[in-house]
């Protein structure tokens, strides 16, 4: 599988451009997802963006502190069966919001989204409970994804195998290491074989062995005429996994095209092909010479992914603390 990615430039695919994986051309078929001039706005409570300093303006900071964020502003694209698409852009550019809109989890303010079959966000996360055992969480998560109880029973062993957490399956998820938790979530999320699989960062979890298995699982989904959409800040991950890249900036689509072209453009515009310039290591990976020994590139990518996984875990921890606080307050 590793070779799939590294030798794509050797194949001649004039119609699709150089960024397309060699076997992708044959699989890209009819449209699976159509996003038509989509705008997504949402309300936030408890704060406002204010310009002036008049008494009236200052009062509004405390009373009626409701504001509207225009996260996505007029994005259109068409995705096809068998395509893997990466979405890149700075923090706050509307990537995750767009994904949630496609998943049907956020309402579209203007425009429309059509999908062929189910679009599922790799985000069963929210349905799982830390106080319950892995076993109960598999059932709960599977049902949350829309599986029937019979389907959950049928896929239970597969999920446990993929997660590879052994006897920890009987312990509450509270007791899991962040890598174990992430593996279980990944295994549950992908058990439903969605027609359109969407991944928001943090695919990068755990050890090398798990990385391989998760990669296989994703390939499997894309193989079954599915469509994969990946949101990531890791350019190497996007380069490895996607045929096509959408670049979002402040809610607008800046570029849409073959991976190599868009990433080049992105790096030319931003100076470096990374969204977080302080991360030296990742910059190195992204700039890595194509001629480098494959093993070394792999190692660096691995390091970058592990780093992303740690960040994800920290974010989750913060979110959890927040919701616990909210619960106490309520």
């Amino acid at each position: 599988m590793a070779d799939d990615y590294d030798d794509h430039d050797d194949h001649d695919e004039p119609a699709e451009g150089p960024g397309i994986r060699p076997d992708a051309g044959s699989r890209v078929g009819k449209p699976s997802l159509i996003v038509d001039d989509v705008h997504i706005h949402y309300r936030t409570f408890g704060g406002r963006r204010l310009k002036g300093q008049s008494w009236n303006q200052r009062l509004r900071r405390h009373v009626g502190a409701v504001d509207v964020v225009k996260a996505v502003q007029g994005v259109s694209f068409v995705a096809h069966h068998g395509e893997s698409i990466g979405i890149i852009g700075h923090n706050g550019s509307g990537k995750s919001t767009l994904l949630r809109g496609i998943a049907g989890a956020l309402p579209v303010t203007q425009g429309a989204i059509w999908a062929d079959g189910t679009a599922s966000l790799l985000g069963v996360n929210a349905a799982l409970m830390r106080d319950l055992s892995g076993e109960r969480n598999i059932v709960l998560g599977g049902l949350a994804l829309g599986l029937t109880p019979a389907q959950v029973r049928e896929r239970y062993d597969d999920i446990v195998d993929l997660a590879g957490i052994g006897e920890f399956i009987d312990l509450p998820m509270r007791a899991y290491s962040s890598g174990m938790g992430a593996r279980l979530r990944f295994a549950i999320s992908t058990s439903s074989q969605p027609d359109i699989l969407m991944i928001d960062e943090a695919l990068a979890t755990g050890d090398v062995e798990f990385k391989q298995r998760s990669q296989d699982r994703i390939d499997d989904i894309v193989e079954h005429a599915g469509t994969m959409i990946l949101v990531s800040h890791s350019m190497s991950m996007v380069r490895n996994m996607c045929d096509r890249v959408l670049w979002l900036d402040r809610g607008r689509l800046v570029a849409d095209g073959p991976t190599a072209d868009v990433l080049d453009e992105y790096s030319a515009k931003t100076g470096r092909p990374t969204a977080r310039p302080t991360k030296r290591k990742r910059v190195q990976v992204d700039d890595a010479d194509e001629d480098q020994p494959v093993s070394r590139r792999r190692q660096q990518e691995q390091a970058a992914r592990e780093e992303a996984a740690r960040e994800e875990a920290a974010r989750e921890e913060a979110a959890r603390a927040e919701s616990a606080k909210a619960e106490q307050a309520g």
Binding site: L33, I34, V35, D36, V78, I102, G104, A112, W114, A115
Partner: peptide
């Protein structure tokens, strides 16, 4: 109806989030 809406209708895609 926009071009994309026509394309969606042509391929029998269903509307999300309504």
């Amino acid at each position: 109806m926009t071009d994309l809406a026509a394309l969606a209708a042509e391929h029998g895609l269903s509307r999300v989030g309504v």
